[in-house]
Amino acid sequence: MKILITGTAGFIGFYLANRLIARGDDVVGLDAINDYYDVNLKYDRLIYAGIERDDITYGKLVQSKKHDNYRFIQLQLEDKAGIDLLFANEKFDAVCNLAAQAGVRYSLINPQAYVNSNIVGFVNLLEACRHNEVGHLAYASSSSVYGLNESMPFSTSDNVDHPVSLYAASKKSNELMAHTYSHLFNIPTTGLRFFTVYGPWGRPDMALFLFTEAILKDEPIKVFNHGKMVRDFTYIDDIVEGVVRVIDNPPTGDPGWTGKDPNPSTSRAPYQIYNIGNNNPVELMTFIKAIEKALGKEAEKNMMPIQPGDVPATYANVQDLVDNLGYKPETSVQEGIDTFVAWYKDYYAARWIDAKA
C-alpha cells in the first residue's frame, strides 16, 4: 500500500514508519517539526530513517537515503493548500494520523495550538481523504477522552462526554468528526485511544524520560497526586503492532448497530474506536521503583498534588482489539523500562557521564 503517516518525527509515528518501511509499503512521512520539545530528538528520529536535516525544505518531499520506499515532507496539518496538493499528487491508499499537539498540561498554557493542529488540521485531513478516495483513515485519539469516567477498566462502549482538558476535548472532537465523514461519505475511519505510551526514542515531556534524567542527575522527581496515580503504561512495540493491524483491517460498519441502543465505538457506517493499552494498570510508585531498579539508583521524591487536567487512573479494556484483530499488548513494565534506560544511556551518553561524575 501507499500510506501517509503524519507525525513521523514524533515518537509513535517514527516507529510506525520504520515498521511499514521494513515490510515494503510505500511510505510518505509528514511532520511539522514544531518546538514543543527538543527538535534535535525529532531530527535524529528522521535521520535514523535516512532523512537528512539539511535536505528538509518546508512543503517539499525528501527521498530517504536509506530506503527507496520512504519519503518525508515537512508540512503543517493546518496548511490546507499544502495538504490538498500532497493528497492530489500521491493518491494514498491509507492514512494514519499521528500528528497532533500533544500533552495534557501544555493545553492549559497554549490552547490555540490544540485547535490549530488537532481540530483544524484534522478537518483538513478528512476533507483530503474525502476528495481523493482514501481507503482508510486511522488516527490517534487518546485515553484522556475518558475524563471524569470512573468505571474501570475504561471501555470503548463507555460515555466520554466529560473530558477534563482541552487536549482530551480535541481528541473527542476527532472521533465525532471522523464518524460524520464515515456516515456521510463512507470513508472507513478508525480511532485509536492510546494509553500512556513509553519506550526508547520517547517524548522528553513524559514521566519515564523526566524521572530517568532527574535520577541520573541526583535531582528530585515530581511525584504528582502524592504517588496515588495509576496508569496503563503501554510499550511502544505493542502500540505499533496494534496500529499496523488496525491499518490492515478497515472497518466495514456494523449492520446490527441500532440508534435505540447505540454503541459509541461502532456504527452502521464504517467507523470503529479501539483502546490500545496494556490492560494491566501499574501504580506510579511501582513504575518509579522499576526505573530505580533499571538505574541501580534510588530517586529523591518531591510529593505534589494532582495537576489540573490529569486523571488519577487509566485502565484499558482491550477486548474489542482481541476479538476483532486477535491482538493484546503484553510487554511488562520492567522489561520496557530496562530497554528504555539502555537506550537513554546510549543516546545521552555524554550527559549520563556528566551526571555520574
Rank of each mutant, 00 (worst) to 15 (best):
P111M: 02
A102I: 10
A138M: 15
D161L: 10
V160M: 07
L98T: 01
V115F: 15
V95R: 07
E133A: 10
G147S: 02
G135I: 04
Y146Q: 00
N110Q: 05
N132K: 02
N118G: 00
F92N: 12
V115N: 13
L148P: 03
L108H: 00
L125P: 08
I119Y: 06
V160Y: 09
H131V: 09
A94W: 01
A100Y: 09
R130H: 07
V123H: 14
G135P: 02
V120S: 10
A102D: 11
S151K: 14
Y114V: 09
V104F: 05
S157K: 13
V134E: 07
V123E: 15
S144P: 08
V134G: 02
D158W: 11
G147M: 01
F122V: 05
N124L: 02
A100D: 12
L166P: 01
G147T: 02
V104G: 08
F154E: 11
A138I: 11
A99S: 09
I119M: 13
V160R: 05
F122G: 00
F92Y: 15
L148I: 08
A138S: 14
A99L: 03
A138Y: 15
A100V: 12
A138E: 09
L85D: 14
Y114I: 05
G147Y: 08
A94C: 09
D158F: 11
Y139R: 05
L86E: 04
G147I: 05
F154L: 10
Q101I: 04
G121A: 06
L86C: 10
S144F: 06
H131E: 15
L98C: 02
A128V: 04
Y146A: 01
S151H: 13
S107M: 12
N124A: 03
Q112R: 13
N132A: 03
R130W: 03
L85V: 09
N110V: 01
I109C: 11
V134R: 01
E150K: 13
H136Q: 03
L148Q: 15
N89Q: 15
H136D: 02
D158C: 12
G121F: 07
T156K: 06
V123T: 13
Y146W: 14
I109D: 15
P111C: 00
V123D: 12
M152V: 12
A100S: 15
P163F: 08
A100N: 10
D161W: 04
L85S: 15
I119F: 07
A102M: 10
V123W: 13
V115M: 14
V120T: 15
P111L: 03
H162L: 04
R130N: 02
A128L: 04
L137V: 06
S142A: 04
L148Y: 12
L148V: 08
G147V: 03
I109G: 09
A94H: 07
H162Q: 14
N118C: 00
N159V: 11
L108A: 07
A99H: 01
N159Y: 06
M152E: 12
L125H: 08
L98A: 02
N118L: 03
G103M: 07
R105K: 07
L137S: 03
D158R: 06
E90R: 06
T156W: 06
L86I: 09
Y139N: 10
A94S: 14
V160A: 09
N149D: 15
F154R: 05
Y114D: 13
Q112H: 13
C129H: 01
A100H: 07
L86N: 08
P163W: 05
C96S: 09
E133K: 09
S142D: 02
M152R: 14
N118R: 00
N118H: 00
N89K: 13
L98M: 05
Y146L: 02
